[in-house]
């Protein structure tokens, strides 16, 4: 009877904002260097490197968020980053491995560590999970620190060859354009890595994993009883999260030109990885990126205005953002839009 003919459309086909956004992002980063050069000339060299830092923060934040979607508030992000950086550096130093192998292997090393850590911490929740992951990261830092100097350089770390050495061609370019070309090349590497991370995040959000992750985050027991396999999916989230930070660590080792225990495994890397998505909006693809761009701009602006102690202002921004937009920038804007939508609908 009518019940069968009244087939409710399962869901109105939605406009694929996420994929369109990814394409827009790709186009924007493709043209960004030339645009900066045209607009700012010589100053674009440093702007490019600031923009690259923002991309780096985006990758860090988005990859952390992917793991957080399962409720695992990891404080080991610096360890994944450092594992990638050191693996890439070791391969470059001892095996002369080409970078297109070295960087993915950095990602792989991060994944291996993440799987071990993820398996060990499967039963831990909340703050216990956080402290356990933090401890594991600190232990890994110390282990790397104490590897024989001949292998990993100990306290002094290792030098890593830079990736790009553009040549200065007299008469055809100015001196600063060499630096521009180098920074531009790095910018594209980072942009590619970010696009890969974004794509992975979008695929998670569009698939059934989104529901599984949310279910595990909000109630792991109930999720299990409903057929979701929490252990397996939590480990999958660890893999998806660590592979991109690991590669980021590898790329960054090449860009910075060195790895050091204190720098590659710095707690502040972890702090940034979690602060940024909270600021931008958790458990979304857009939020961590908005957070990274927002916080990078805030930090850069503050650095220009107050040379010393600008981090004080950064702290103030964090405090105010939690007090006045507890659901992050994306949550705040989304809430405002929804409220306006309701008002218009009410009219």
């Amino acid at each position: 009877m009518s019940a069968s003919t009244r087939t409710r459309r399962t869901r109105p086909a939605q406009f694929p904002w996420d994929l369109v956004g990814l394409v827009l992002l790709a186009v924007a980063v493709a043209f960004a260097p030339d645009l900066l050069k045209a607009l700012f000339g010589r100053a674009s060299v440093s702007y490019l490197s600031i923009a690259t830092n923002a991309l780096s923060l985006s990758i860090l934040a988005l990859s952390w968020d992917v793991l957080a979607r399962t409720g695992q508030l990891s404080l080991a992000h610096a360890a994944f980053y450092g594992a990638g950086a050191y693996t890439t550096a070791l391969l470059a130093r001892h095996a002369d491995v080409p970078l297109w192998i070295g960087i993915p292997l950095g990602g792989l090393a991060a994944v291996v560590f993440a799987l071990l850590l993820g398996a060990a911490t499967l039963r831990l929740r909340g703050i216990y999970f956080a402290i356990a992951t933090l401890s594991a990261a600190e232990v890994l830092k110390a282990v790397v620190h104490h590897l024989p100097t001949g292998i990993a350089g100990g306290n002094a770390g290792m030098n890593v060859p830079t990736l790009f050495r553009p040549e200065f061609i007299a008469g055809q370019m100015e001196r600063w354009e060499v630096a521009f070309l180098r920074n531009e090349a790095y910018f594209y590497v980072y942009a590619t890595l970010l696009c890969m991370t974004v794509l992975a995040s979008i695929l998670v959000q569009r698939s059934r994993l989104k529901h599984a992750f949310t279910a595990i985050r909000t109630n792991e027991e109930v999720a299990g009883v409903m057929g979701v396999r929490p252990a397996r999916l939590k480990l999958l989230a660890f893999v998806l999260s660590s592979v991109f930070v690991g590669m980021l660590g590898g790329v960054e080792a090449h860009r910075v030109g060195s790895v050091l225990p204190e720098q590659s495994f710095s707690v502040s890397t972890t702090v940034l990885a979690l602060v940024t998505p909270i600021f931008g909006g958790l458990y979304t693809t857009l939020g961590p990126i908005v957070g990274a761009l927002g916080l990078s701009s805030v930090q850069e602006g503050l650095r220009r205005v107050f040379s010393d102690g600008y981090l004080i202002g950064y702290g103030v921004v964090l405090v105010l953002s939690i007090l006045f937009m507890p659901r992050g920038v994306v949550g705040l804007v989304g809430g405002l839009l929804r409220r306006r939508g309701k008002r218009e609908a009410g009219r």
């Binding site: 059934r208 599984a212 279910a215 999720a223």
Partner: peptide
């Protein structure tokens, strides 16, 4: 104990997708 961040359909969908 519903999943509070989801709509009803999404709640039920978890069971349907993974059950």
């Amino acid at each position: 104990q519903p999943f509070p961040e989801m709509t009803l359909r999404e709640n039920v969908l978890v069971g349907a997708l993974f059950g």
